Simulated scan of single mutants.
Amino acid sequence: MISIDVGGAKPYAIRIGAGLLGDADALLAPSRGRHALIVSDANVAPLYARRVVDALRSRDGLVVGECVLPAGEESKRLPQFERVLQSLADLGATRDACVYALGGGVVGDLAGFASACWMRGIDCVQLPTSLLAMVDSSVGGKTGLDLDAGKNLVGAFHPPVAVLADTDTLRTLPVRELRAGLAEVVKYGAIRDTDFLDWLEQNVDALLANDGDALAEAISRSCAHKAAIVERDPFERGERALLNFGHTFGHAIEAEQAYTGLNHGEVVAVGMVLAARLSARLGMAADADADRLADLLERFGLPVAIPPGLDPEALLARMRLDKKATASGLRFVLWRGPGRAEIVAGVDENSVRATLASA
């Protein structure tokens, strides 16, 4: 069992290990009241919800409810958000109730946002079941919903009271989802840790083979990086924006495909390569750095080019609405080579346009 502490005004622990979804002590420790709601989706609930329900009901008097949503990014919308709130109402959830977000990033974001809004804020325990959620979305308290105009435009910062990452769930993770999570793992090496990037290059085969030791190492190192950044910058007023490396491009692609094409990890992979190539175009880094990043991502079976049929001008319009954009124009996370990411404001749109066109 690995434990990583996230400090700050509302500290909590990330626990990483096998069997956590059946560990009644770990699941019940953060619960303060008489009501618990498990929010999951149609893919994950049949596999793991009963295990969590049984563990929670080992406490006498705890009323446990379930809300199972359709699987997929399309659920991260207002109608499903309302379903979670109605489930809390049906449960009679009081201000000391706890929501357990059992699933990937969509469930974690949606359940977390509902927790932030119910009675102006109740506790949420993140139970990530995908690699991507374990290393990224479950940590840090970013919650939210998608609109037609873009991804995560509605949301709140609402830190969980605990994160329990049960590595046993990765055994049932589809290969595509495993690869998607590895994109976010690569991100940590790209933005701040060249030693980790070297380690990933040496362990591609083990990670793709779902080797438990290799995955535990990748998850713990990724979470340690994110925990340190979130502790210093909980509301993304500075350094935390570095975690969005590749996301400005990626979110534009995701929205332009109406969330029905590449998944989140895949668009982040493409976006990181585009950010590296934009950095080279602006004279910040060498083309060889972008080539190295693209090679690693391709070894993980991830896409590194914009899907055919997407209009660069449409993507640019999406990026103007990105949350990182300011009155001075587009703002990107770029790099000066591996491990040296930085936030760059007022990026010339012609350079972005040329990068999109060449990809």
Rank of each mutant, 00 (worst) to 15 (best):
G329Q: 09
R83M: 13
L131R: 03
A26Q: 10
S220V: 04
A252L: 15
R336F: 10
A228C: 12
F157I: 09
R237G: 13
D96E: 11
D96C: 11
I38C: 09
N350R: 14
R318L: 06
F196W: 07
T248S: 15
D146W: 10
G271F: 09
V139F: 05
T94D: 13
R318V: 09
D205L: 05
V39K: 13
R171W: 03
V84C: 04
T194I: 11
L315N: 03
D205N: 09
R32T: 15
F81T: 10
L302W: 13
R57H: 08
L356C: 12
F196H: 02
E66K: 00
S328P: 07
V44R: 04
A36G: 04
L62H: 09
E239R: 07
F157C: 03
S138G: 08
A241Y: 12
D123T: 07
M134L: 13
V135Y: 00
L330V: 14
V107E: 01
E256D: 14
L316I: 11
D5C: 03
D90N: 02
L69D: 01
L28R: 13
S58T: 14
A314C: 06
K76M: 10
G271E: 11
M284I: 14
A149K: 04
A218K: 03
D136H: 02
A36K: 07
A286Y: 07
V53T: 14
G265T: 02
L208M: 08
D211S: 08
R292G: 10
A285D: 12
A49M: 06
G181Q: 02
G65V: 12
K187V: 09
E256Q: 12
P70D: 02
